[in-house]
C-alpha cells in the first residue's frame, strides 16, 4: 500500500451517471488487476474505494457511478485537482491461476476491473472473452475499450434495448471457457456462480472503514475462514464462497 497525491488528468461523463477519471501519480504499488484505490475526498471522513480500470507507469484510471454524496462530489472535480489516494489495496486476480480460456463477466460498475484484467491476461497469452451486463442501452460504457483489445465482447441488457436480452448468464453458453472472472452486484455474482461449470474468481464489495485490513469493518465468512474483503479479498475463489 502506498499513500500519495494524484492529479486529475480528466474526469468525464461516460453515461448520465457514470464517470471516468484519470489520475496522474505514483502507480508503482498497483500490482494486480482487481485491486482498488481508496480516495480521500474533502468534507468526507472515510475514503471511497474504487477499482482500477486501467493503469500504466504514469497514471491510474477509474470508472465510477454516482450513487451518493461522495461520488456526487467526485464528479465535480476538474483537471488539475489533487487527491490523496491509497493505492495497491486488495488481493486482486492472479493471472497465472486464471486458466487459459478466461471468461470475464462484469455487471454495471463491475465492468471496470475487467478491463485491466483483460489486458494482463492477453499479455500472458491467454484467450479472453467478455460479457457485460446493463439494465438498458443508455447505461452501456467501455464496450469499445474491450473491442479495441480484440476481445470478443457480448452485451446483455435487461430490457433488450441492446445486445442479448436478459442477464449476463444468458450469454454464458455462447462462450467456451475454463475459468470465470467476475465482478458486479451480488445477485449477479450468485447467478454466475450457479450457471458456471468451472472454477472462477469473484470480486465482492463491502462498506469499508480503512480499506487496508486494520479495522475488521468488511469481514465475511468463507469456507477457508473469516476474510477481510479489503485485504484478503475483494477477489475470492469460487470454491471458498459462502452465500
Amino acid at each position: 500500500m502506498k499513500q500519495s497525491i494524484f492529479t486529475i488528468d480528466y474526469n468525464i461523463a461516460l453515461t448520465s451517471d457514470v464517470y471516468k477519471m484519470r489520475l496522474i501519480g505514483d502507480t508503482s504499488d498497483i500490482k494486480r488487476p482487481g485491486e482498488f484505490v481508496n480516495i480521500k475526498l474533502d468534507g468526507f471522513y472515510l475514503r471511497r474505494p474504487i477499482s482500477v480500470f486501467d493503469c500504466d507507469e504514469e497514471a491510474v484510471t477509474i470508472i465510477y457511478k454516482v450513487v451518493g454524496e461522495g461520488t456526487e462530489y467526485m464528479k465535480t472535480l476538474e483537471y488539475g485537482a489533487q487527491l490523496d489516494v491509497l493505492t495497491g489495496l486488495g488481493n486482486g486476480y492472479d493471472v497465472d491461476k486464471c486458466g487459459d480460456k478466461v471468461l470475464l463477466i462484469g455487471g454495471g460498475v463491475g465492468v471496470p476491473p475487467m478491463y485491466y484484467l483483460a489486458k494482463k491476461l492477453l499479455e500472458a497469452g491467454k484467450t479472453v472473452s467478455m460479457i457485460m451486463g446493463f439494465n438498458k442501452k443508455e447505461e452501456i460504457f467501455a464496450k469499445e475499450d474491450f473491442e479495441a483489445l480484440g476481445v470478443p465482447t457480448y452485451v446483455t441488457t435487461v430490457d433488450g434495448s441492446e445486445g442479448i436480452k436478459g442477464f449476463v448468464t444468458n450469454a454464458m453458453d455462447m462462450v467456451e471457457y475454463d475459468c470465470v472472472c467476475t465482478c458486479g452486484p451480488e445477485p449477479m455474482l450468485r447467478a454466475v456462480y450457479d450457471a458456471s461449470k468451472t472454477t472462477g474468481y469473484y470480486s465482492f464489495e463491502e462498506r469499508m472503514g480503512c480499506g487496508f485490513g486494520a479495522c475488521m469493518g468488511c469481514s465475511c465468512k468463507t469456507k477457508y475462514g473469516n476474510k477481510r474483503i479489503c485485504k484478503d479479498g475483494p477477489v475470492l475463489v469460487k470454491e471458498e464462497i459462502i452465500w
Partner: peptide
C-alpha cells in the same frame, strides 16, 4: 455487515469485537 457508516467528521462501527 454492513458494519460501517459515516458522517462528515466521524464514523460508526459495529464490528462486534471480531
Amino acid at each position: 455487515t454492513p458494519r460501517i457508516a459515516e458522517t462528515p467528521n466521524g464514523m460508526i462501527n459495529s464490528v462486534g469485537l471480531q
